[in-house]
Design a protein around this nucleic acid. Structure first.
Length: 119
DNA sequence: ATTTGCTCAGCTC
DNA sequence: GAGCTGAGCAAAT
């Protein structure tokens, strides 16, 4: 059952990436764990994304905090974008505090949803 | 077979 | 604790 269509996988990953709030980043491995695939595949799909404007693929980095690559203007642009959102990048490395697991983000998202409902 | 937007375990300093 | 190396990984070319 791990044979998901590429399109579906793409959609899932895009949605997940769009869930990342500004000022936070996540890792390829986190995404990979979510979709049950290898980090390489996630990276490839992120790279293949057709509209980098709506999909903040710059918020996805290595687990070590390194930025990794960025086909949409190069890693320098990626760094700029992250800094613009409040993420501190030191020596091409995002400090650990900003890295959040996708699961955590989703939990917070649900929490927010609940809050809205209560209101 | 080679190249990638990766990650982990070991090793050195 | 921080940095480097080598191997493993899955998909595209």
């Amino acid at each position: 059952m791990s044979n998901i269509n590429r399109e579906v996988l793409k959609e899932i990953i895009y949605i997940l990436v769009q869930l990342i709030p500004p000022g936070k980043v996540t890792t390829y491995s986190s995404l990979a764990k979510m979709v049950g695939k290898s980090p390489r595949v996630v990276a490839r799909i992120l790279k293949e994304n057709e509209n980098p404007i709506v999909i903040p693929c710059h918020r996805v980095i290595y687990k070590d905090g390194r930025l990794g690559g960025y086909s949409f203007g190069g890693p320098k642009i990626k760094k700029k974008l992250l800094e613009l959102e409040g993420v501190k990048v030191i020596n091409n490395r995002v400090i650990k505090e900003h890295i959040v697991d996708l699961e955590r983000i989703m939990e917070e998202g649900e929490k927010i949803e609940v809050d809205l409902k209560c209101t």
